[in-house]
């Protein structure tokens, strides 16, 4: 994880995004404990309230949950949930800016589709 405390994105959103990413990539497995608010707070020099706010975003989305007295745990099915969410965001987050940029550069729809095909051919990652 890497938090930019002087960046453009609010810190609590960065916390939520990065925890989510760690869960999605398997750093934290389902039904496993994630680091506590205080640990994250001390490690990245971030106010514990801010960290908690970020975590609560994930709680609201049903990605993590609180075990009383034990800490925050990754919910079963969290990875699938994140995947569904990200698939839902894919259009607005990636495709729309792509099309916008393509239009700026006068790349036609046909050309763009071709380029996407080539992207797949080049390894797909």
């Amino acid at each position: 994880m890497n938090i930019d405390t002087n960046g453009e994105i609010p810190i609590f959103i960065q916390i939520a995004e990065q925890l989510e990413d760690s869960i999605f990539t398997g750093v934290f497995q389902e039904e496993e404990k994630i680091p506590s608010t205080n640990e994250i707070s001390a490690l990245f020099n971030i106010n514990p309230h801010t960290v908690l706010k970020g975590m609560n975003m994930l709680v609201d989305q049903g990605i993590i949950y609180k075990k009383r007295g034990l800490g925050m745990y990754v919910k079963e099915g969290a990875v699938q949930k994140i995947r569904t969410k990200r698939q839902g965001e894919f259009l607005t987050k990636y495709i729309e800016p792509l099309v916008k940029e393509a239009n700026k550069l006068s790349i036609s729809k046909k050309n763009l589709l071709e380029l996407i095909e080539r992207g797949y051919d080049n390894g797909g990652n």
Partner: peptide, 14 residues
């Protein structure tokens, strides 16, 4: 500095 901030935040959390 890092250590100071670290300890301070831990104390604050506690």
């Amino acid at each position: 500095r890092e250590m100071f901030y670290d300890i301070m935040l831990r104390e604050y959390a506690q």
